[in-house]
Amino acid sequence: MSEYERSRTMPAQPEHVFDQAANADQLDAWLPDALHVHVQDPPAVTVHEDLSGQDMPALLRAQPDQMRLEWGTREQGSYTGWLQVAGIGSGASEVTVHLSFFDEGHDPGEGAVYDALDGSLRRLEEQVRMRADHTAG
């Protein structure tokens, strides 16, 4: 089993950050570029991976009261992950993303995973900033 985790501080209230992260219509805006989530009958979703061209049945659950998203593959159980938003004071939040690969063949490797996590957190922060600017203006 391989596990990876990254965190990033964002200049917004945790509720605002969670709302952006959990918005099913905007997941593609911050997820890794090669992944696309198609919501079917929540929590059931399908994840399309551009590199392999495969669609994978998955689950995506939002827990607003805990400001947490959880996801994973439905049938094989080879992959799970979560995103947690926490307030850190002064109107800022810390977002942590954690991935677990139970099937080593599904793990793309440390460098690729950390690049994807860092990129996703950066794009989520951009989403949060754009939404905050749009709301303020």
Rank of each mutant, 00 (worst) to 15 (best):
R8W: 13
L35R: 02
V95E: 01
T9R: 15
V39G: 07
Y4S: 08
E110A: 14
E49K: 00
Y114D: 09
D19L: 02
R123F: 03
S90N: 15
L124E: 00
T96C: 12
E5N: 03
E5K: 05
M130S: 12
A29N: 10
P32I: 00
P14Y: 07
E126G: 04
G105W: 03
A92D: 15
H48W: 11
F18N: 06
D19T: 03
P64W: 06
L27P: 02
Q13W: 15
L51A: 14
S120W: 02
E110C: 06
Q76K: 15
R122S: 09
L99W: 13
P32F: 00
L83M: 15
S93N: 08
G111N: 15
A44F: 13
V37L: 07
P14M: 07
D28I: 00
T96V: 11
G137D: 06
D28P: 01
W71Q: 00
R61L: 09
P108H: 13
R74K: 14
R68Q: 14
E94H: 07
V37W: 04
E3G: 02
T46E: 15
D41L: 04
E15C: 06
Q13N: 14
R129Y: 08
L51S: 08
P64V: 08
W71F: 13
A34R: 05
L121F: 01
V45Q: 11
H16S: 10
M1L: 14
R74M: 06
M67S: 11
M1A: 07
R74S: 12
E104Y: 10
L60V: 02
G77Y: 00
S78C: 11
H134A: 12
A34Q: 06
